[in-house]
Write a protein that binds this DNA or RNA. Sequence first.
RNA 1: GGAGCCGUAGAUCAACUGGCUAGAUCGCGUCCCUGUCACGGACGAGGUUGCGGGUUCGAGCCCCGUCGGCUCCGCCA
Length: 615
Amino acid sequence: MLRTHTCGELNIKNKGQKVALCGWVSARRDHGGVIFLDLRDRYGRTQIVFKPTRKEVFKTADQCRDEFVVQIFGKVVARPADMINKKLKTGEIEVEAEKITILSKSKTPPFDINQEKKVNEEIRLKYRFLDLRREKLQKIMKMRDEVITYIREYFHKRQFIEVQTPILANSSPEGARDYLVPSRLHPGKFYALPQAPQQFKQLLMIGGLDRYFQIAPCFRDEDPRADRHPGEFYQIDIEMAFVKQEDIWEITEQLMIELTEKFSNKKVMQKPFPRLTYKDAVSRFGSDKPDLRFGLEIKDATKIFAKTKFKVFTDVLKNNGVIYALKIDGGAKFSRKEIDELTEIAKSKKAKGLAYIILKLKAQSSLDLNRDSDRNREKLKITVQNSKLNIDLISPILKFLNDEEINNIIKTTGAKAGDIIFFGADKWEIACKSLGAVREECGKKLGKKDPKKAAWLWVYDYPMYEYNEDEGKIDFSHNPFSMPQGGLETLNKKNSLEILAYQFDIVCNGYEISSGAIRNHDPKTMYKAFEIAGYSRTEVDKKFGHMISAFEYGAPPHGGCAPGIDRLLMVLWECESIRDIYAFPKNGKAQDAMLGAPSEASERQLKELKIKIVK
RNA sequence: GGAGCCGUAGAUCAACUGGCUAGAUCGCGUCCCUGUCACGGACGAGGUUGCGGGUUCGAGCCCCGUCGGCUCCGCCA
């Protein structure tokens, strides 16, 4: 060993000991007649003192620069009482250097490693090995390891076994784009990296390994987002046989509670986790992954406007649409520009516009008139005639509404002076999801996303199918391997778009952490389920024949889920980007900025694989 | 595939409506300093304002294009 101790462990009890330390120079303070080096490793920092009495040692210390790697031999000495550094774990002592060896020099680093100030991510990724030396990433890597260790223990205590499933697997025809790996032994054929170990874990259930988990790498060739790492990610893959939904929920929920409480400073808002059906979640919060740290619930106002003369609304109602309203407390202060921005957000979710009514105290609104935005609004202002409320309303749509409608909408939404009401008028899904996007943005703007809270919930009863308007056909809305509620009989009888699946999500603070399902383990039901989505028996056999034939040899009822570890940690630790959770993340174009991956293959490799690149 | 935001010394930022010899802090180099701890002090070196074009007497700032990064929509069963 080149060292006897780490830089984080020496204290007053080691006084007088001869020690050897190794680490990086994190600061050098040269006082002419005495030099201090701060030596850093991942355990901490220790101050090394050099005195001019040892000429050679002193000279070497003088040559040291930040990030040099050095080995120190010396004696632990107590610092005088007035020189103790309380900010440092090792602050009671220092090491008087008797020998120093420069193990490795360093160029001047491209950014400051010892300060936690913001640095351009592009350069941090290019020099990730330096970024990893910084305190924040050191902590994340350590805690990530602790979390994964905890997860493994959690499942092992409960009779689960971890199984490594193949990385070189087969293309799965549904879902995300695959990463393909050409086969040398079988020219023209390709492996696909698994998008998830979905099929393997189900085969494990049939194989009798009735409680399986894996810290599983997954690969999807899709465009990234701040919460979606490009290319690869890890999930806590779970599958259990002989279970119902509740059994999966119970074991997953307990793990999520423990991880939240042990590894974050967030408080779990509600235990047991609230459960919302897909329909409720979307109707009330405009999303199947709502952030329940705040309320701002959407209300159904369709009935209020049943007889309205407002053409925009009547047109929607004629087409079996809905009119939903979202009241934002304190939203009256939004500027015209902010409302325009919210309108754009609603439009990005296919809404045609975003009608609104602003509620202001009478006195207040006249005082505010010197503000430009209010002068513009003045022409829109109407004082509520029949209301006892002392408010002015400002809205471009008021002239189309009658007093009864206005009073009812105020009553239904519970709006008061200082609030704003937004309207979503469209087909149910568009009305909800556009208001949901507005709700999300308002929550953010109004500071309702409390970093100390973890609002977990289950969303269940997802529809089995959805209508694909572009292609004019019925598609699986989630996992085609999910069990339809009611089984074969329901598939045969019920309107396909009304069939629910034993399919669920777990959500935290507005992020989908996992989806899961009770799987379809019955071949007949499976053929029928695929038939509804437009797959012939031959197609199903070709694509999933191996799965279905396995189901013909005694498949136990089973189900599972797969919480994404990276996303979970990102949410628990309030990281802005999921890239912060990885040691070596990829950039937004799925490249490794350090290695330059992906890169071109050599002629020889391509020749062996019988691959020709057409440019 | 589409949209938006950003790009100024090594790093983080500044430069009001176009007036600039492009500044500050940290870092870097040389020198001074025996108790600092993000030491201090003196002096100094760092820039084709991502790149190309245009408008203008004059462009870091305005316009067009392009490259790079990020974010969002689509996509992610």
